[in-house]
Design a protein around this nucleic acid. Structure first.
Length: 512
RNA sequence: GGCAGGGUAGCUCAGGUGGUUAGAGCACGGCACUCAUAAUGCCGGGGUCGUGGGUUCGAGUCCCACCCCUGCUACCA
């Protein structure tokens, strides 16, 4: 059994979870569930990034300690993920003692293996208050930051520890050359190639004024203790989650897949690989950078999130419907827009009318015409079409070219469309009136139930709870989550006792 | 400013190496059916393929210019 260790970005603990966070976790969960159905031994990691100035500030504003603050925020996030049926196996927090120990060990290991990689330097440069960043020459036009031309730049000095990123320039070039699949999708890879072509610079990895941070383990020349830069603290979570530095960390590491937002690509594809290489630790196999969701055309952010809560979106049609909609509507390799209108539209058209109703009519006919027992029947073109399309379904989801979740859903949904067409054209209700056509009716009923069962498996990564519910209504044995893709071809529903339950996806009137 | 990608039906998008009447889903209109969540199926209307040139027997598909949009432009989580 192949191991599949996948991770999501850990979320920064300075606010409540919103739909933007949810998109990534739901997508990652779909991939995790897909791998389980493919037979992999999956380990799915998520977590929280809890250090940094902004967390400290937010805690101060509420008059609570940073730890109390992040404890509350983390609980809120974990609660949200539970409501969305996210199947993570582990939830790491950067304030966990084990994580702090791991980061310290990693830094010490880099220092031990490559003592030259850390050095102290007084950094001075133009600081843009708008960006809250030091700006480079090529980002300054007419003495002002290109992104904030109305602000004055400030000349600032600070003595920090630096990481010699420049030493890994050629290593990274070779990585991207030899392993084109390391970063996907292609557009993100091109951006990193452009960055490498431009040439890297060393990065400062400590902050002198940072109190809410992991203390940097190396002693400064002036005796001052500095806080570790948040990313040098956050990125190693993927490694510390495996138990690093305990030897057993090799049982999980290296990760097969890091799932991140496209905005933090360079941290994961330049800084993180360089850190691992400096520590002489194996690199993860692949990084997938997904796009973002907009709301009403606006970038989904804290401010837009105020428009509605994650819970409101869940309450609309249920968690499964939200999961389905986000992954169906927004391409996982790019950006997409969320709107209530589209949500209702897809819910009614695809989940209620197409799929829910196909299940409803099929189960009702088995009950009415065969006393609820699925007859045995011949294979039909419906089976053949579904099995033929499996190739495309897997091509979209198995990672060989990337993770095109939207495409995978489309392939599964095509089976639903064929099912409805098949029922309509074979007119089982007419066959039922003619006793001489009993065998034909058996063929039709069994074919449709088989198709529904296959749909349960194919859609399970996206719609986990409802597929289990339909599986039960079909009278199928066991659970969907225990099925395997390679069992689909031989799937047979003969003898199953169907039980019609409540509508899978009740149609809702268009509101708003 | 630089680099990259994109502008195709009301909406979201497909359209390898140029070639018959430019496609899909949703939405809209008509018809059929009754097993089903007034659901489903079939048919149909609808597009100057961003703008202006060029190459070619022929361009949405190649070349040039321009307009517009988006992303990236390292230590913001």
């Amino acid at each position: 059994m192949a191991r599949f260790f996948l991770t999501t970005a850990i979320d920064y603990a300075n606010g409540d979870p919103h739909l933007g966070h949810a998109l990534e976790k739901i997508g990652a969960d779909a991939i995790a569930r897909y791998r389980r159905l493919a037979g992999d031994d999956v380990h799915f990691l998520m977590g929280m990034d809890e250090h940094g100035q902004k967390v400290k500030q937010a805690a101060d504003e509420e008059g609570v300690s940073p730890q109390a603050f992040v404890d509350r925020v983390a609980a809120t996030f974990e609660d949200a993920w539970q409501h969305l049926d996210i199947s993570n196996d582990q939830f790491i927090r950067t304030t966990d003692p084990a994580h702090k120990r791991g980061v310290k060990a990693l830094i010490e290991r880099i220092h031990e293996k490559n003592p030259d990689d850390f050095y102290e330097k007084t950094y001075e440069g133009w600081y843009c208050v708008g960006c809250e960043l030091f700006k480079r020459e090529n980002e300054i036009v007419d003495g002002r930051c290109v992104l904030h031309p109305t602000r004055e730049l400030q000349w600032t000095e600070e003595r920090n520890w630096f990481f010699r990123l420049t030493r890994y320039q050629s290593f990274l070039e070779r990585l991207f050359d030899e392993r084109p699949e390391f970063l996907r999708p292609e557009t993100r890879r091109n951006e990193i190639l452009a960055l490498l072509a431009q040439g890297l610079e060393d990065i400062s990895i400590t902050r002198s004024r940072l109190s809410w941070a992991i203390p940097f383990p190396l002693r400064s020349s002036n005796g001052e203790e500095q806080g570790t830069w948040v990313w040098f603290d956050a990125l190693p979570n993927y490694l510390t989650a495996t138990g690093f530095p305990d030897k057993s960390y090799r049982e999980l590491w290296p990760a097969q897949l890091h799932i991140i937002g496209k905005d933090i690509t360079r941290l994961h594809c330049v800084v993180w690989p360089a850190m691992l290489q400096a520590a002489e630790i194996a690199l993860p196999q692949q990084v997938w950078a997904h796009g973002f969701m907009t709301f009403g055309g606006e970038r989904f952010s804290k401010s837009a999130g105020v428009a509605f809560s994650l819970q409101e979106a869940i309450d609309r049609h249920g968690a499964d419907a939200l999961r389905y909609f986000l992954l169906r509507e927004i391409p996982f390799d790019g950006d997409g827009d969320f709107s209530w209108e589209r949500f209702d539209e897809r819910y009614n058209a695809e989940l209620a009318n197409a799929w829910g109703n196909l299940a409803s009519r099929a189960i009702a006919m088995v009950e009415k015409y065969r006393d609820g027992v699925v007859p045995s029947g011949e294979r039909t073109p419906l089976d053949q079409a579904d099995l033929a399309e499996l190739v495309e379904y897997h091509a979209a989801l198995d990672g060989s070219r990337g993770y095109f979740l939207q495409e995978g859903i489309k392939r599964a949904l095509a089976s639903v469309g064929r099912g409805n067409e098949y029922v309509q054209s074979s007119q089982p209700w007419a066959l039922a009136k003619d006793e001489s056509k009993r065998a034909q009716l058996d063929d039709v009923l069994s074919a449709v139930i088989r198709a529904l069962a296959r749909q349960c498996v194919l859609l399970h990564p996206f719609v986990p709870a409802k597929t289990e519910e339909l599986w039960r209504q079909l009278g199928a044995p066991g659970r969907v989550s225990d099925q395997r893709f390679d069992g689909l071809a031989g799937l047979d529903a003969a003898g199953w006792k169907v039980r019609k339950g409540a509508s899978l996806f009740p149609r809702t009137p268009n509101e708003r």
